[in-house]
Design a protein around this nucleic acid. Structure first.
Length: 627
DNA sequence: GTAATTAGGA
């Protein structure tokens, strides 16, 4: 490399300082500046630095400045600050750079301290200084800096404005962000992207899309922001759709795009799309970094392919705790409890410190295998051994574990004695366990408690109604129905999806909107014939039905997962596995139906519900009917 | 003869 040879030549021809001859001329500063900018290692920088010292050039403003900048961009903030302290005349460039170096390391109070020092030394800040200060800074100091920027007249600068838009939007003040954005003297792609990000991060994905659609040029960042907006707000199908548009545009996706898209595929259980993305990366030079690897493991486990998840996991050179967590959670999700616990042991042997997510994984593993005492052991070790405070989710795992195993009172005591606030999900878990074990008394006691403390939601009533139904108390069912109608509470609609030929098809209960609806319902009829022949009678689902006419009743009776399975049967080759994703927990009836259908058709059926995976093979489910 | 703003894995 020419730059390196120039550098070494310079070093070789340089005699010791004492013997410098009068006709010796050091390399011109532009060449030295070039070398500093080209340096890729701290070693090279230190050598140049030494060279400057030997030649008495250490106070050269530009070279010194570049050195300081390169130190911090190579991750050696310490060297940067040392050099900064030794610099005699610190102008606005030096200050801006040292501030920027701290900002990008997340050291905002240090950055502010430098700003104050700068003012006390009467060095005047400029717009550059402000954009460096503002980037990602906390809301309170952001607002103060906004005031300062106005006073000093920098708030109209495009960079400063963009950073301000970003700060207000990121801290949920989209209105102010939009005002700042609308009054900008000049909009740029970056400021538009900041505004789109603001909408997307606050859940206003449609407003984000409207701005996005108005762009006449789009770079990879704004595509990524928009795609990730859909992914993060539960609209993964739209994320995939937009990704397809991106592929048609001239903009090449990068690693960030992959992270969003893999997450979307995982949410959808879209294995074919996920595999396609994986091979796309291999063919387009996007390497499997620890981030991408983790996203792949997550995607493959959520799409039901633990084998591929494990292959990615084993193929990763460097694995951090997040990567281990995703594999552990993956095993737990599929009910491979022993494998999850085994992996936890491996992780400990490598002296990796578990995190709260690790415990979500292993506590779920215990729950799926009914390992009550082991679960308690892990739960207690969180605080005692690892210093991790259990969060509501960990209590959720424990209540699920205890509840499923029939330790209802123990679970109830655990919730009542928690040091943190409970939430409806946690109580819902316990109510679900009460239904499972037909414990009406405790169920009623809990609901009473929840209503008194204004903690009840629609789920609470649905569960109570289910408990009544399970115990044959039809009056109770009717009362709850009336109560829900009166309070206007709605049940969250069940939705199932299935991927066929790279396209994800979604079904609601009783859905008639699918183009192949007619064939699907014919298939349902056929399925019912098969089931009858096997001596199966449907479990009367008594929850929340409108029984106005026979047709309507029938359509409501068809749960979304049955529609998805029927669609899978008619649109995939015989013998192929049918993979369905459901947003709620699978009900007992559908679980029974899936078992029988797997036996009758000889097909493997995989259902991912809100809680875990169910692999139905030849009339049996991997959950052992315990979920 | 120097500098700044937008995206990211469980």
């Amino acid at each position: 490399m020419s730059s390196i040879s120039l550098f070494t030549t310079a070093q070789i021809v340089t005699p010791p300082r004492t013997t410098i001859k009068q006709n010796y001329h050091p390399p011109p500063t532009d060449k030295l500046a070039f070398l500093i900018d080209k340096s890729k290692t701290i070693r090279e920088l230190l050598q140049i630095h030494a060279f400057l010292l030997r030649h008495g050039m250490e106070n050269h403003p530009v070279l010194n400045f570049k050195l300081q900048r390169s130190y911090s961009s190579l991750g050696h903030l310490q060297h940067s600050t040392t050099l900064f302290r030794q610099t005699e005349t610190r102008n606005v460039y030096f200050y801006t750079t040292i501030i920027h170096s701290h900002t990008i390391s997340g050291l905002h109070s240090e950055a502010l301290a430098y700003y104050i020092q700068m003012l006390s030394e009467y060095v005047e800040p400029n717009a550059f200084t402000f954009s460096a200060l503002l980037k990602g800074c906390p809301f309170e100091s952001g607002k103060s800096l906004h005031c300062q920027a106005i006073k000093l007249g920098f708030d109209l600068d495009t960079y400063v404005r963009t950073a301000l838009v970003d700060i207000y939007a990121r801290h949920c003040d989209v209105i102010s962000a939009r005002k700042l954005f609308d009054t900008m003297p000049e909009r740029t792609l970056v400021s538009l992207t900041a505004m789109i990000t603001g909408y997307a991060k606050n859940g206003n994905v449609d407003e984000a899309r409207a701005l996005f659609n108005g762009l006449d040029e789009r770079d990879v960042v704004c595509w990524n922001v928009m795609i990730d907006g859909y992914t993060q707000y539960g609209r993964p199908n739209e994320a995939l759709d937009l990704f397809r548009h991106m592929l048609l545009s001239k903009v090449k996706p990068n690693e960030v795009t992959m992270l969003s898209i893999l997450s979307a595929c995982g949410q959808l259980g879209a294995l074919e799309s996920g595999q396609w993305v994986h091979s796309y990366m291999q063919n387009n030079g996007i390497s499997i970094s620890v981030l991408v690897g983790t996203a792949l493991i997550d995607m493959y486990s959520k799409c039901g392919s633990l084998e591929e998840a494990r292959m990615v996991f084993d193929g990763m050179k460097f694995k951090d705790v997040v990567a281990w967590n995703s594999m552990i959670v993956g095993y737990a999700m599929h009910g491979f409890s022993q494998e999850a616990l085994e992996l936890f042991k491996d992780m400990r042997r490598k002296f990796l410190q578990p995190t709260d997510i690790t415990f979500i994984g292993i506590l779920n593993a215990c729950a799926h295998a009914g390992l009550v005492s082991e679960g308690w052991g892990f739960f207690r070790s969180m605080e005692d051994e690892f210093g991790i405070d259990p969060k509501i989710e960990h209590y959720g795992c424990m209540v699920n574990l205890l509840g499923r195993a029939g330790h209802l009172e123990e679970a109830y005591e655990l919730i009542k004695n928690m040091s943190i606030d409970s939430d409806p999900v946690l109580w819902g878990t316990l109510l679900g366990a009460c239904r499972l074990h037909g414990n009406l008394n405790l169920g009623e006691e809990i609901v009473k408690f929840l209503v008194e403390h204004d903690l009840a939601n629609s789920g609470t009533f649905v569960l109570l109604s289910n408990i009544y139904a399970a115990t044959g108390n039809w009056d109770g069912v009717a009362r709850v129905r009336a109560k829900m109608k009166e309070t206007g509470l709605q049940k969250e609609p069940g939705c199932s999806s299935i991927e066929v030929n790279n396209k994800v098809h979604e079904f609601l209960a009783g859905d008639l909107n699918h183009p192949k609806s007619e064939k699907i319902y014919k298939m349902i009829d056929e399925m019912n014939e098969w089931l009858k022949a096997q001596g199966y009678s449907p479990m009367t689902d008594t929850v929340l039905h409108d029984i106005e006419d026979a047709e309507k009743e029938r359509s409501l009776e068809v749960h979304s997962e049955k529609l998805a399975i029927a669609f899978g049967l008619i649109s995939t080759k015989s013998g192929r596995t049918i993979k369905v994703v459901k947003n709620l927990r699978i009900c007992m009836d559908c679980h029974n139906v899936a078992k029988l259908i797997s036996k009758i058709t000889g097909r493997k059926i995989v259902v991912r519900d809100r809680n875990r995976f169910h692999h139905f093979v030849d009339g049996l489910c991997s959950c052992g009917d315990y979920w």
